[in-house]
Amino acid sequence: MALLQKDHLDGANDWYRMNPSAKKYALRDNGFEETKNGNFQFSRDLEIGKPTSPKLKITISSDLKSLKMSAVTANGLRSVNLYKNDKTAEAREKAEYLLSDFVESNIVEKAND
């Protein structure tokens, strides 16, 4: 999985990049876990109480310069477009809420330029 300077969820208009002031402790405080190779990974179910809920997955490089984000199926094997239809409205809202929380926490910033 290649980490990118900026990324977005499939179907979304908003792009995100790392906030230059992001700190490793802020990642940990917001639910990111450090992997064996030093990257940070966030994975969260987007629909409460549903075993087939899509997940939001975000991986941030150990130098905090690049990221990769995606919405995936419950088993993590396929990418999901949360913006394709209304069946994923709840998951889409939760993903957007989490991303706006990461913007407020100075982890990522919108990169719609």
Results as ranks from 00 to 15, higher is better:
D7M: 14
P51Q: 13
M1R: 11
V108I: 02
Q41R: 06
E96W: 02
A26F: 11
F42V: 08
W15S: 12
D14E: 05
P51E: 15
L67A: 12
D101W: 01
L3Q: 09
L56Q: 08
Y97M: 02
F42S: 10
Y25F: 03
K55V: 13
D86I: 08
E33M: 06
S79E: 12
P51K: 11
D45A: 15
A71C: 13
K50D: 14
E90P: 03
A2S: 14
L99Y: 00
G31N: 05
S53D: 14
Y16S: 07
A89N: 10
S66I: 06
K65M: 13
F32P: 01
I48A: 15
L99N: 03
G76E: 09
K50S: 09
F42L: 06
L67K: 05
D101T: 04
M69E: 07
A2V: 13
K23Y: 03
H8S: 14
E96G: 04
K65I: 12
E109C: 05
T88D: 08
K23P: 03
A22P: 04
L9I: 09
N106T: 00
Q41C: 13
A26R: 06
K68N: 12
N19V: 01
L67P: 04
D7E: 08
A12V: 10
R92H: 02
G38H: 09
P54V: 10
A111E: 01
G49D: 15
